[in-house]
Amino acid sequence: MLSNMIFIILATNLLISSFVMISTKRVIDSALSMLIALLSIAGIYATLQSSFMFITQIIIYAGAILSLVIFIIMFLNIKDKNLPHEPHKTRDMILTSLVVFPITAVLIYFIKLSDFSNLNEKTTSSIGKVGLELYQNYVLPFELISILLLISLVGSITLARKEKDV
């Protein structure tokens, strides 16, 4: 019962903060509410008793990716006048939600419809088991990811580097 309460609180927090994230005007507000959303997702991983994803979420998303975003916002020194002028923001968002709503409804309907048999009780997944699974069955994607990261590293340096005019 208590875990249900915690889940409901975290889920509400997550949905509200992500709504604030997509609807606020200033980028820094949006980034900070994204932080709250990411931390609530970490909490949801905790209710799922997945210790590894809990710590990964905090270190990688909240720690690395989001601080990179905030760093970029500071680095570019974005003033309010440089923000996009969005006079029809509310109208656009309502129209988009009308388009997105059927997709969401269909997905939720199919999830309600399908039966998930032989569900277990929630069990703690240890880091050791995750590592074994990663290296026993998913070693190829793991290696490929390293090449993907190399490509994106070299690519972003290539693109962001300033060059003399030619």
Binding site: Y138, L140, P141, L144, I145, I147, L148, I151, S152, G155, T158, L159, E163, D165, V166
Partner: peptide, 23 residues
């Protein structure tokens, strides 16, 4: 998942190639 990562490897390289002319 391998198909997706391979697709990302190919398309990320192409993203960079598309923007290679910075001027």
């Amino acid at each position: 998942i391998v198909a997706f990562i391979a697709l990302e490897i190919a398309s990320m390289s192409i993203y960079v190639l598309v923007g290679i002319n910075k001027h």
